[in-house]
Nucleic acid binder design. Structure first.
Lengths: 115, 115
DNA sequence: TATAGCACTTTCTCAAAGGAAAGTGAAATT
DNA sequence: AATTTCACTTTCCTTTGAGAAAGTGCTATA
């Protein structure tokens, strides 16, 4: 059997995996998804629910998540215009992945810290 | 029902998820795991199998992956000393996660690019 | 004796990410 | 008339990460 192949088709794995990781990794992505999912739908509410996040970063991340179709930015009313953020149903497709990452992470902490 | 809770226990999710992501995200982690998994066990072989990686980065990533118990660095022989890298069986526990990330990523590309 | 190979390390540099702080424009409130 | 709120944007600055290139200490080989 061929040892040391150039693992061509593995690149077909690495690319989509990286796509997926780009969406959920990063310091703020998950906290934002959770915050919106839990009911915070206004910019300032989301900001205040996540200690340490700056408006600049929040604005950028919200745009990102919107582009990835994970949440919607809705303009409500005429004057005063209000903005409302809500999770798209599509965001739920992340749930099983997040929970398997969580389970792995919980176990991993044990693995790494055991002597 | 309580809206806008401070989602306390969600932090218990975010932390281990971040732990897990730290292990597999990054530009080189997965390519290295795959390269070693496929049979490249020498530093230079691994380096040559991954286009663009520099020895500095490879050395750092290998140390990382070793600390996370995903691979082993074995010193072989007396003189000439050879170093051999192999995946730990523990690395297999990542497989289902990687494949679910891949599946999600493949689908996500469709979701984002459809008009 | 000189060169090549192995497994890295060191130094320098640069770009991108991220935080702090202030500003903005419109409307609502006091 | 002045302040506050909302949803951001802008500017400045620092930190971090990564690449390029060269070096290192050892051995093996020609």
């Amino acid at each position: 059997m061929a040892q040391k192949k150039t693992h061509c088709d593995c690149l077909n794995t690495v690319k989509p995996v990286r796509d997926a990781l780009d969406v959920i990794s990063g310091k703020w992505k998950l906290p934002i998804i959770i915050s919106v999912g839990v009911g915070n739908d206004r910019f300032t509410d989301i900001q205040e629910s996540i200690p340490g996040i700056t408006p600049k970063v929040l604005a950028k991340e919200l745009k990102d998540l919107e582009q990835h179709k994970l949440l919607k930015r809705i303009v409500v009313g005429d004057y005063p215009v209000k903005i409302q953020y809500t999770l798209e149903p599509y965001a739920d497709t992340l749930t099983p992945i997040i929970y398997s990452l969580k389970d792995w992470g919980v176990n991993h902490r044990k693995v790494v810290t055991e002597r």
